[in-house]
């Protein structure tokens, strides 16, 4: 069901070496931001991080959602899903409203706050490399295959079989397969995901549906509103007119009926 490429991250295999972190920096020409890479956080110069939780390490990066909030909310369509399933950003369209940052359920997009012509930054699944037929820089650099790159179908298969073959070793859930409609980055781990800092309690439905439910009503609001207002205008106007005419009528008829009686009094 899922075409395109993606990443499977296996917490049990990650040794916290930071090779992916370094590779991503090099691939994207990003300056160093922190001497201790394990303490770094996502920023405009850091598109992926490795975090330490006890003796476990967890990678964070854009989840390349199937129905991404960022794509749905951007007023100018800066974000787009490409042929690999990666969610990529076009800096030439962006107006900098930062709704994408507000809306992303994984709080991924970052902003170049320091610049006067800032961009939104996030992992783009190394789309340039993918076009050349290579794997992502982070997956290539990973010495243990904790970060595995491949076709989505394959990755899901691998993840499933790992969960099945080692039921005691793995927490029985593939994070990112269904969360917020699922995406192209999957995570499996020995413990519940919220303990590793992944956003928990996300609904399985894609987030944009929440907005769509309201947006759908717009045409009917416009139509119903238009009809209602026009009718009301017409009705109330008519009412006022009739009231006025009735008064006039009353006056006229009274005048006629009474004839010239009063002249006799003069």
């Amino acid at each position: 069901m899922l075409n395109g490429k993606g990443i499977l991250f296996d917490v049990t295999l990650c040794i916290g070496c930071g090779a992916c972190y370094q590779a991503c920096k090099e691939e994207n020409d990003l300056p160093n931001t922190n001497k201790e890479y394990l303490k770094d956080h996502l920023s405009e110069n850091t598109l992926t991080i490795v975090e330490q939780y006890g003796d476990k390490y967890a990678r964070k990066l854009c989840m390349h959602c199937n129905e991404p909030s960022c794509v749905s909310v951007c007023p100018v369509g800066s974000f787009k899903k490409n042929e690999f399933g990666a969610v990529i950003y076009d800096k030439n369209k962006c107006i900098g409203c930062r709704y994408c940052m507000q809306a992303c359920p994984h709080k991924v997009p970052r902003y170049e706050w320091g610049k006067t012509q800032p961009r939104v930054r996030k992992c783009n699944l190394c789309s340039k490399r993918l076009k050349e037929g290579k794997l992502t820089a982070c997956a290539e650099a990973c010495p243990t295959e904790a970060t595995l790159f491949g076709d989505m179908e394959k990755l899901i298969e691998v993840a499933n079989s790992r969960l099945k073959n080692n039921p005691t070793k793995y927490y029985q859930h593939i994070y990112g397969l269904e969360e917020a409609g699922g995406g192209h980055v999957l995570v499996i781990s020995p413990m519940p995901f919220e303990q590793l800092g992944y956003t928990a309690m996300l609904p399985d439905k894609p987030m944009p549906e929440l907005t769509m439910r309201a947006m759908e009503k717009i045409p009917s609001v416009v139509a119903a509103g238009g009809i209602f207002l026009t009718t009301m205008y017409w009705l109330t106007k008519r009412k006022n007119q009739i009231a006025r005419e009735e008064k006039k009528q009353l006056f006229k008829s009274e005048n006629r009926n009474n004839g010239n009686k009063y002249h006799e009094e003069l």
């Binding site: 749905s72 909310v73 951007c74 007023p75 100018v76 369509g77 369209k93 962006c94 107006i95 900098g96 409203c97 709704y99 944009p208 907005t211 769509m212 309201a214 947006m215």
Partner: peptide, 16 residues
């Protein structure tokens, strides 16, 4: 770029 929404449409966006 404030004028971009005029020509670059994303009808799914509330902001739009």
């Amino acid at each position: 770029n404030f004028w971009h929404p005029l020509i670059m449409w994303n009808v799914h966006s509330v902001m739009f």
